[in-house]
Design a binder for these strands. Sequence first.
DNA 1: CTCCTTTGCTACGTTTTCCGTAGCAAGAAG
DNA 2: CTTCTTGCTACGGAAAACGTAGCAAAGGAG
Lengths: 91, 91
Amino acid sequence: MVALDLLGRRWTLRVLWELRDGPLTFRALRDAAGQVSPTVLNTRLRELQEHGIVESTDAGYALTSDGRGLRKALVPLWRWSEGWKDPQSGG
Amino acid sequence: MVALDLLGRRWTLRVLWELRDGPLTFRALRDAAGQVSPTVLNTRLRELQEHGIVESTDAGYALTSDGRGLRKALVPLWRWSEGWKDPQSGG
DNA sequence: CTCCTTTGCTACGTTTTCCGTAGCAAGAAG
DNA sequence: CTTCTTGCTACGGAAAACGTAGCAAAGGAG
C-alpha cells in the first residue's frame, strides 16, 4: 500500500483533483488549491513526479499516463465527495 | 472538497483500507496498519466517527453506511494501488 | 479476593511536516 | 533600464505525527 502512503499526504489528493481537467502551471495550481504553501506544493509535485504520476510539460504540470490511470481510479471518490453530506458541516 | 481534506491526512486512507473487510479492534487496527501511533490512530478514528464514516461497535471499529459508500468509491483506487508499479520502489 | 493477559485510550517529549512570508533568477514587453 | 509574470527556494514558527510508557477495565484461573 505504498500508493496509499503517497496519497495520504496533505494536498496530494487535492493537487490531483486540480489537475484532473488538464495541465496547470505552478502558480495556477497554487491559486486553485488556495491554501498550499509553495514549499509544500513543490515537495508534492516532486514526489508525484518521482513516482511517475505527474510530469512537467510545456503547458505546466500534467498527469502522466500512469497519472491518468490514477485519475480514473479517483473519479468515484470525487463523485462520492461531491455527493457526500458531511454531518460536521453544520447540516 | 472537504472530504479530500479529511482523507488527505496521514493514515486515514490506510485505516479505511484496513477496515474494508469488516470491523477491527483498536489494537488490531494498530497492528494491521503497522506504524501508526495510538495517538494518531485515536485522532483519526475520532475524526472519522465525527464525520459519520466509522463507528464503534461491539466487534470493534466498523464502517457506517456512509463509510461503506466511501469504501465502494475507494475500491478502484485500491485496485489501482495494487496494480501500480512504483518507479521508485527499486524496479 | 489475587495474578495474568488483553483491550482501549491518554500523556509527554522528540522529530517531521506544514505554513507564511520574503526573496531570487529568468523570460517577455517596452 | 523598468515592469510584470512565472518557477522555485530559504527561513522561522506552528501544528501534526511519532515512540514509548502508563493507566483503568474486563475476562479467565485459582
